[in-house]
Design a protein around this nucleic acid. Sequence first.
RNA 1: GCGCCCGUAGCUCAGUGGACAGAGCGGCGGACUUCUAAUCCGCGGGUCGCAGGUUCGAAUCCUGCCGGGCGCACCA
Length: 504
Amino acid sequence: MPANAVDRLAEELGAVAGMKLELERPSDPAHGDFATNAALRAAASQRRPPRELAEELAAHARSLGAVERAEAAGPGFVNFFLADAWFADALAEMLAAGRDYGAGFAVRPEKVQVEMVSANPTGPLTVASARNAAYGDAVARLLEFGGHDVEREYYWNDAGRQMDLFRASVDAVRRGEPPPADGYQGDYVALLAAQAGDPVPAMLEQIRKTLHRFRVDFDSYTREADLADEVAPAMARIDTYESEGTLWARTTAQGDDKDRPLLRSSDGSFLYFASDVAYLARKLERHDRAIYVLGADHHGYVARLKAAAQMLGYDPQRVEVLIYQLVHLTRGGAQTKMSKRRGDVVFLDEFIDEIGVDAARWFLSDRSPEQTIEIDVDLAAEKSQKNPVYYVQYAHARIAGILRNARDAEMSAEPRGSLAPEERELVKRLAEFPALVAEAADRRGPHAVPLYAIRVADDFHRFYHDHRVLESDEQAFRLGLVKATQNVIWRALDLIGVEAPESM
RNA sequence: GCGCCCGUAGCUCAGUGGACAGAGCGGCGGACUUCUAAUCCGCGGGUCGCAGGUUCGAAUCCUGCCGGGCGCACCA
């Protein structure tokens, strides 16, 4: 039996009508609490007028207790108006589930590794990496909420040209010399120079702390050096050939646009792609699914990673590369460019100092990943009604206030009288949550969650404005309703790493 | 040149075939003796980049074009 009231209703309707159907919430309240276009969809294959099928479906639907009224409308929609009993059922299951309402939607739980950030430790994290962290972590949280076993992974280099350049830059400062050409500079280089020892692990530790502050914590850190023993065996498993004095992977045979060199011809050492292949093999040995979270500037990786999986003999479907577009910061309209090697950068720590973790995570999570983000720092820093993150948090805090005043007064999913329109709207909104979060996870699109949270806050604030909870005739029911609302808001915010305050 | 992403209200963006295309911000006007007014209510604003095509039906799918971003290393 489906776990939530909307799915259950859809299934019951489908059963009496003899067809599979999906319910949607019409934008126009005149079109009922829920509606379906099933008749329009089925019309072609059944070779019958959609309107006729809709009439039939409506007639069947009227036999259900949850349905108060059902009518065919428009070109072949069926609109359903639900009885109060359905709302009580829906609220009862929300209260029973608590903060886990909507959880466990994974049809087949998997072991999933989500690799994110993985920035070279040559400097503090920038806002570009912050989007990676915010997006990757939100996807990870969604998958966990669905029931998957998720590992958050950070891959870092401790060798290579950029590392050498970084170390040389720090050493130069230590000797009182200018950094090498194309080297790194800035206050953080001077700070690292003031400490003894290898600056690379020190920088990584600083990154780890910043991410922790950003509420993103990793289960595992893998270094390129950790893969050393696995590279040669991995090379033996894939399709290679020798040409121009080096070894090549024949990735073009698997859809890549060019073959990839594996060895540096000058000294015969393995190139980065060789480690990539070994690393991918390790990922797929240990996990059902390997997710990479990469910025748009790395989209060229997709084809070669898929090709590598194919050559290694794994189903390339198990490799998923999530690409997100870049971030632009504006301040009063003027753009701020980001580069680690110049002085005028915007670091994640500065960003958090300025707008706070909650606003930072919100604004890096509320746009679809394929959309370039533009954040006006001044606006995001404003703690006012302009800022949607506070609008949603305020709803949570308001409810906390009611619950404090209610002490341990009884809650009930059953209303004593009939429901007010604002109560019906709020219950329906909350009832959307399981499907919404399942779809957000499935599409790797966590931005749907904060946008939904705004809708919940809308419906709550409206309800709050029109109805008293405490000492009303419906106190028990309304306490239950606001508790369920608070749980959903808490969870929605938690899924994007934003806190839900008890007071504001 | 080739590949990926984007183009929807003044601005920032939702909307992966269905009912008149939505929200926030900005603008204007209202509402506190009440569990938090960081709230609520009302009013505006659109050739969904352009042109074809598929479909009973297209912002959504296909083709071409125009604009913008990002890639196309024996760097990572």
